[in-house]
Amino acid sequence: MTAERPDQDLPATVHDDGRYPTTTPLDGVLADQAPTRLPVVPVPSAGDHPALSIQGLAKAFGGKIAVDGISLDVPAGSFYGMVGPNGAGKTTTLSMATGLLRPDFGTALVHGVDVWANPLEAKKMMGILPDGVRLFDRLTGEQLVTYAGLLRGMDRDVVASRVGDLLRALDLGKDTGTLVVDYSAGMTKKIALASALIHAPKVLILDEPFESVDPVSAANIRSILDSYVASGGTVIVSSHVMDLVQRMCDHVAVVSGGRLLAAGTVDEVRGAMSLEDKFVELVGGRNETEGLEWLRTS
């Protein structure tokens, strides 16, 4: 936080009166999805604040420690992957970073704004796709995304035009009038993603965004996210598909047992190995396939 430039603290996408702007980088991204298109919006000066900075986050459920003091900085404009085995504390960490779960210890700052001290301002900058929560699934897909936009106090006409763009970009154009409860698992993921994108956030925090999404839709989502990052946004995804993270992300954090094992650019973390091999080396627990000699067809 620099005293000389206090304006820098204000999130770029939120006007001084707290209302949402009518045009944002995402509009351009969605209107023209060509992934090769060069960013027209300059990458924000990354010097001041990381997009997300968490310090010593910790949470225990009952006597069981789920997250044991995780600190990491996500640079603005990065595509950040968070990987870890099942039960590593990824979802818990992301929930605490996004204001959904109150941490026992630690702080989370989004572009310098404390999520827990100043939740309204922080939530305006974040688009969140939580994992394992229900949706208001008796609404149609179109109604659900509209609802998410209106809840954020956005203008109805802006919401309406963005909902159309988003649903088309996510291949949900045919199902706008279907109740979300009748969607398949992959479609449900996509509609939740649309709800997280509607307000053109500065930081996208996506928990397992590619789970049960078909390859074509996954490719579409990736190109949307790539353009979004190229235009200055920050994406944080959790996943346990290492291959995907290695191809998609430029930064990665490895979490296991509620602790941070490694963090940095993908190349720094993996060194000469593939990310998957490095991950197994860091986390451990790999069994050599012995003792299944009978599992042979001959």
């Binding site: 149609t140 179109e142 109604q143 209106l150 809840l151 045919k174 199902d175 706008t176 009038g177 279907t178």
Partner: peptide
């Protein structure tokens, strides 16, 4: 179910376009 596309927002188009109106419509 069968897929349906529509341009109808139902009650969301009737209530005021504010957070309170959206909650009421929902």
């Amino acid at each position: 179910g069968s897929s349906k596309s529509s341009k109808k927002l139902g009650l969301f188009g009737v209530f005021p376009g504010t957070p309170t109106g959206a909650v009421a419509a929902r």
